[in-house]
Structure formats: C-alpha cells, structure tokens
Amino acid sequence: MNGTSGALFAAVFLACAVEAVEAVTIVLAAGTARDWKSAGYGVGAGLVTLAVITAALGPAVTAIPLGALRLVVGGVLLIFGLQWLRKAVLRASGHKGLHDEDAIFARELAAAKAAESTSRFSVPDWYSFTLSFKGVVLEGLEVVFIVLTFGANAHDVPIAALAALVAVVLVVLLGLAIRAPLAKVPENTMKFVVGVMLTSFGIFWGAEGADAHWPGSDAALLVIVPCVAVYALALVAVMRRGATKPAASSPELVSEGA
C-alpha cells in the first residue's frame, strides 16, 4: 500500500468508524430498552436497503466522467469537511460541548422506554425495529457515499470498501462485546482528524476537477493534509485563549455529519 492508498484507507476508516459508532449507539439503545429481536430485524432490513441502494448508485457514480466527478465530489467533501472541522475546532477550543456518546445513549434509552409498544408484520416491537432501521440506513448511507466517492476518485474502490468494512466490523464487535455506548472511543479526536482529511481531499480533488495540476500529483496530499491540520490546530490555540467555561455535552441525537 503506497502513501496515497494509506491516506485513502485512513480517511475512509476514520469517517466510517464515526458513522458506525453512532449507528451502534442507536441500535444498542433500541435493543437494551425494548426488544433485541426486533432491533435485529431492523438492522437486517436496513442492511438489505443499503445493499439495494449501493447496487443502484455504484454503477452511476463510476460512469460519471472523472473530471466532473472530482469537481463535484471535491466541492461536496469541502462542504462536509469544513463543517466537521469547524465543530471539531469549536469543541477542542472549549466553545462547544464535546460529543458525549454516554449522554446520547441515555437519551435514546429514555425515549425508547417511553414509546408505546406495538407489533406489526410479525415484528414483536415495531418501535425497536424502526429505530434500528433508521439508524442503520441513515448512518449507512453516509458510509456508502464515503466509499463510492473516495474510491471512485482515487481509482481504488476496493481499498475504500476494505477500510469501511474494517471500521464497521471493529465498531460492531466492540459494541456487541460491551453492549454499552462506545464512550471510550475517542470520537471527538476522530472527528477532528476526519475533518482534516475530508477538507484536504476536497481541496485536492476539487482543484483537479477544475483542471489544476498539483506538483508531485498525488504526493501533494502529503503536504496538503499537514497544512490543513496545522491551520486547524492554530485556530484551536487562538480560540482557546478566549474560551470561557466549556459548554455542556453536545445534545446531538443523530449524526449531523460531524
């Protein structure tokens, strides 16, 4: 695996791990508070839905001319990457509460316990089913998008798919082993790194899509990524000086892409 493939693997792995943590937290809340069998049905239905969507989107994405694909995807990655990076900088500098999987798990658990229990289509608990299904599909769609766009742009879909698979499997196994929110996963740090990687790839591919030529071709990423990281860390240092008492834990219940 060369340097560019390694950067691709790392970016996809971290981004997909974040999405997997959030999906597993939702499923664990549904299963713990309600019914594991119904939650399992929801996960299965969500995975089937994702497989159908991936089968439909895969050929469409790879059929787009590479220049146009890189321009569009570069712009999209810049939008998402800068959003992730902005929130990561705010959290690291004390201007925004840290993302707390314990708190999210507790709120999801309370909501699941309070919901009415109904049975539909041979599913014992419909609430557990729908909660798990939505969590898997919503977070899974982001994983599919990451794999297809990163893989197609880098001409290496297998590496992107492998990184996503490894990330999801590791997070799921960890979740099954402890059956608790994955609070010990350094998600805030991961989100900072993912923000840097998405922004860097967005700059690189967006410029290439606009017919710019980077010195050293793909090796330019080895300069772009550290530059973006140093700039983000400098922002954290500057903003930390003016930070007051850190905000309370983030109230996010579902992924907002950061």
Score class of each variant (00 low, 15 high):
3 G>I: 07
3 G>V: 04
6 G>Y: 08
8 L>W: 06
8 L>F: 00
11 A>G: 04
12 V>N: 00
15 A>W: 01
19 E>R: 12
20 A>V: 04
21 V>G: 04
21 V>M: 03
27 V>T: 11
32 T>N: 11
32 T>C: 07
33 A>G: 05
34 R>S: 10
35 D>M: 07
38 S>C: 09
38 S>Y: 10
39 A>L: 03
42 G>Y: 02
42 G>K: 02
43 V>Y: 08
45 A>I: 13
49 T>Q: 06
50 L>K: 03
51 A>W: 01
59 P>D: 06
61 V>L: 12
64 I>Q: 04
64 I>C: 02
64 I>K: 02
65 P>D: 14
66 L>Y: 01
66 L>M: 11
69 L>D: 02
72 V>P: 00
72 V>R: 04
73 V>T: 12
73 V>G: 04
74 G>N: 06
76 V>F: 13
80 F>L: 15
80 F>A: 14
81 G>E: 06
84 W>R: 13
96 K>T: 10
96 K>W: 15
105 F>V: 01
109 L>G: 00
110 A>Y: 02
111 A>V: 00
113 K>A: 09
113 K>F: 02
114 A>P: 13
117 S>C: 05
120 R>K: 15
122 S>P: 00
123 V>E: 07
129 F>Y: 15
131 L>Y: 14
134 K>P: 03
138 L>S: 14
138 L>K: 13
140 G>Y: 03
141 L>D: 05
141 L>W: 08
141 L>I: 12
141 L>S: 08
142 E>P: 09
142 E>N: 08
144 V>H: 00
145 F>P: 00
146 I>R: 01
147 V>A: 09
149 T>V: 00
150 F>C: 07
153 N>C: 15
158 P>T: 05
160 A>W: 06
161 A>W: 05
163 A>F: 02
163 A>E: 02
169 V>A: 10
170 L>C: 10
174 L>A: 14
174 L>P: 00
180 A>T: 02
180 A>D: 04
180 A>V: 03
181 P>V: 12
182 L>M: 13
183 A>E: 07
188 N>S: 11
192 F>M: 06
194 V>Y: 02
205 W>R: 04
206 G>D: 05
209 G>Q: 06
213 H>E: 15
214 W>P: 03
215 P>Q: 06
218 D>W: 14
220 A>I: 09
222 L>H: 10
224 I>H: 14
224 I>N: 14
225 V>L: 13
226 P>C: 08
226 P>M: 09
226 P>E: 07
227 C>W: 11
232 A>N: 08
233 L>I: 14
234 A>G: 12
234 A>M: 06
238 V>K: 08
240 R>F: 00
240 R>H: 05
241 R>C: 03
241 R>Y: 01
242 G>C: 04
244 T>N: 14
249 S>P: 11
250 S>E: 15
254 V>P: 01
255 S>H: 02
256 E>V: 12
